[in-house]
Amino acid sequence: MKNETPELFKKIFALSVIAVLIVGFFLAFTEMPKGWGVNVNGRVSRLYVLKNVRTATKSLDSGKFFAKGVKPLRTDVAYTPIEFKKTANLEDGAANVVTSIVVDYRGFDTLGEVTVLFLAVSGVMMLLFGKRKKERKKKTEPSLIMYVGTRIAFSVILLFGIYIFVHGHLTPGGGFPGGAVIASGILGLFLGRRGYSPNHMGLKAFESLSGIAFVIIGLIGFFSVHSFLANFLPTGIIGDLYSAGFIALIYIAVGMKVGSELAAVVDTMITDTEEEWS
């Protein structure tokens, strides 16, 4: 009992040092002189709304897209409709405006969100991680139906999660929901068999490699287009699987990271451990 506070205190101190370092990283990128770092104003072009949003220049006379008395944003640019599977080389090829804003124009915010999740998960794991307790024998085993059913369901759930984040630039969804779906499938595996434990090193390697991949994709944009997290791939035809530049790559990285992180949270919370500080 006497020795519990210093251990906990050390952990909290280490966590806050990591948080301060990450905040410094973000400040270093956003406060850089012009032409370096995150050039947010230059990235959001004025033509974005005209090129990517259908309702922007729809003329007044059709009146379908506007309520009475509402004027379109600009009338001097000719209206060119965007057709699915035909229009090519848009400024940003995502089928969803929300997706292109979240991942492309405000990709730095998404990096921040992923970092916040990473800090929360490391806090949980620092507090709860420890030696595995010995199993008591009086606990009841789940039935055979549960055991087989969760394993069959896990494959389908895993496939669905991968579908959600691979098609992030075509359908609503993306990295975060896909990762959460995969993590709930792993939760099902935990419920189906007592004493199940995933490969810890595999989870850690997955999580760190995908986080590193996110930053490396950003740095490639930094060195080739001169802005951190800028699109450096051709955008292709809207609606194709291979389109929208680097959005699909970033969503794959985010999905793998979120999935392995949430699975690690479920793992640390569900296994009986002997915490070091208690």
């Binding site: 609503p172 929901p177 959460a180 949270v265 479920v266």
Partner: peptide, 25 residues
């Protein structure tokens, strides 16, 4: 719909399970 998917997966699925586990502990 994207916010709806996220809310259903995290709010209704994972966080409920994590609360139940925490209650058990």
């Amino acid at each position: 719909p994207d916010v709806a998917i996220t809310e259903a997966a995290i709010g209704a699925g994972l966080s409920t399970a994590i609360f139940v586990i925490a209650l058990k502990r």
